[in-house]
Amino acid sequence: MTIGTKFLLARYADCSFWLGRYMERAESLARILDVNLHFSRDSRGSQNWRSIVQLNADEERFDEAYDVASYANVVHFYVLDRDNPSSIISTIRAAKENARALRPTISTEMWSHLNVFNNTMATLTSDDLKQSELSRVCANIKLECQTHAGITEGTFFRDQSWYFYLIGREIERADQTTRLLDIKYHLLLPPDQRVGSPVDVSQWNALLRSVAGYHAFRREHPRGMSPKQVAAFLLFNMSFPRSIALCLSQIDQHLHRLRSGFGLRAGISAMELLDETRAALAGHTSDTVVQYGLHEFSDYLQRQLMAITIAVRQEFCGAPTESDGD
């Protein structure tokens, strides 16, 4: 049955998609910074802040502007640096700009909250980001992102726009999870380090916490923690909101809803790409994925998510073909 026949401007669809993505990205970044502060220490007790730069594939941009990957530099780069498009302040600002374009359709509460959040971010200074303060700042950012999610859930009109918002959010979630998996497995595990050593465990612990998954993991695995188990949890678990499998499944549902519920005929190649990706995921177990290479598989997932993004934007929003607009 068709639940909505009213059209949606292509531009609004695109802005909804990016609003969902940017808010998810900001929250994820705040989590990663916070967790890194607390849990990512190497065997000598020093924290590795460069890993966050690697995680986001920002080495080039970071190295151009900063000399060392110190705490202060990395945190500045990711929280306050307006010249860094993937900093939290830039991300929130981009979210706000998309919300501004969507302002005719979104609730006043949603707009007002985002506007205030953006204004608050603009008042942050380096002083607020001292090591002793970072956790509180990150907690506030997460809370604001979650408040946004709550207001949005409670007020967003369930037209096509809503599904584009959700697709954007789920793609970003999946993307963030692949990056975490990749970095922890591939870059943070020196070849000579024994799997299962205390530092290694603490890093996997941090990984789970950065996706708010530590306790969820413990419910599935009350005892022990192996890299393989964690990887499998983040890839395949169908109850954990940030697992790849669940994110892909949700994207699939939202795309179906757009096509069946709103009678949209676009989205075929996005659906095909998604089917292909889900089949690839379903074809793996935790054993085979490690044999295949977690880095390679993460890479594959990231490429697929990018291709799905491009397909969604081209097919529904008439976006140009050469870039994903990120």
Binding site: F7, L8, L9, A10, R11, Q160, R265, A266, G318
Partner: peptide
């Protein structure tokens, strides 16, 4: 609320670009 780029003219009629 549309911007100029959301609209186009074909056969002397005005259309807007939508997801459908």
């Amino acid at each position: 609320l549309v911007e100029g780029s959301d609209l186009f003219v074909e056969n002397d009629r005005v259309w807007m670009r939508t997801t459908a």
